[in-house]
């Protein structure tokens, strides 16, 4: 008995020993910054000096037009780009799984390729591609699809379209692979039975495939929502610092600019980042709720 309890203690100590290095880093680079931000958020920087403003930063935020604009852009990108991409990814996967069997592996690999590029590299590429006198405009002019070049980067509306197109290019194949995995888990006997009953391919899709893919759809939406909330690299590089005239400004980019480009105001930047945590928390809560309900 005595031996077994000392053995138990030994194992328990080993467990703590194994997690110690990670926990030290976690405390220094996660918990401490979180605590420190509680202090930062009450401060206002003026040059090198700072003063206590309490909740002043949040009051300022409520009246900050650019902040609200940035937040609305995050939601615009979420509400338009994510459904578009998830739908496209699902359709591609379904066709690849049933319609086209030739070259399936090759298509899968090729469609997945865009997401191996770094966010910076593909933002650079798209920015060159979409100049007013750039490749895409030239191609479309030559094919007589348009009469005048489209301002992909300098028209407030088209700049948003640019971000949506770029995101779709990079992430559709990535999401498609999730759907392919999901489709492979569906028992093919269900389709055979439906075939015997004379159900058309389209009926099969709506009555069998779609309901069984809902967990994958939710998963895709959840991961994409998190990514879109943190959108930074694309508006900073592709549309040149959230331009034109803040038309593609996002919350993450605005935080960065407050701290490093505009005012070096770390207090206000911290206050802004609390909003991001809040939104991320609410989204996570909704996601967990929805996933639980499914079960």
């Amino acid at each position: 008995m005595k031996k077994s309890s000392s053995y138990h203690r030994y194992l328990n100590r080993t467990g703590w020993r194994f997690i110690t290095p990670a926990m030290i880093l976690y405390i220094v680079f996660m918990l401490y910054p979180i605590m420190y931000s509680l202090f930062l958020v009450t401060q206002k920087w003026r040059g090198m000096s700072r003063e206590f403003v309490g909740l002043g930063n949040f009051v300022r935020m409520a009246q900050d037009q650019i902040f609200w604009k940035a937040l609305s852009h995050n939601f615009i990108f979420m509400l338009i780009q994510i459904p578009l991409m998830v739908f496209l990814a699902m359709i591609l996967a379904v066709i690849l799984n049933q319609g086209i069997r030739r070259f399936r592996g090759l298509f899968r690999t090729v469609y997945f390729l865009p997401c191996v590029t770094s966010l910076v590299a593909y933002s650079v590429l798209f920015r060159i591609l979409l100049q007013s006198n750039g490749l895409l405009n030239n191609l479309m002019l030559n094919l007589h699809l348009i009469d005048t070049p489209i301002g992909w980067l300098n028209n407030p509306f088209w700049a948003k379209v640019t971000i949506i197109l770029a995101l779709t290019w990079r992430w559709t194949g990535y999401n498609m692979v999730f759907f392919l995995v999901g489709l492979q888990n569906i028992d093919s006997e269900i389709y055979e039975a439906a075939e015997v009953d004379g159900a058309s391919k389209i009926r099969q899709f709506f009555n069998i495939t779609l309901p069984l893919l809902i967990p994958v759809i939710l998963f895709s939406m959840v991961t994409s929502t998190n990514g879109t909330m943190q959108l930074f690299d694309e508006p900073n590089i592709l549309t040149n610092e959230g331009g034109p005239a803040n038309a593609t400004m996002t919350v993450a980019l605005y935080i960065y600019r407050q701290a490093f480009v505009l005012n070096s105001d770390f207090g206000y930047a911290s206050a802004l980042s609390y909003v991001m945590v809040l939104v991320a928390g609410v989204l996570a809560f909704i996601q967990i709720k929805v996933l639980k309900e499914r079960k």
């Binding site: 931000s37 980042s273 991001m276 945590v277 991320a280 996570a284």
Partner: peptide, 20 residues
Amino acid sequence: ILLLTLIIPQMAIVIPMFRQ
């Protein structure tokens, strides 16, 4: 606790971490 802090976006951590 680790899993709970997983939802905190990187952007929210880097501001205080830069000062640190």
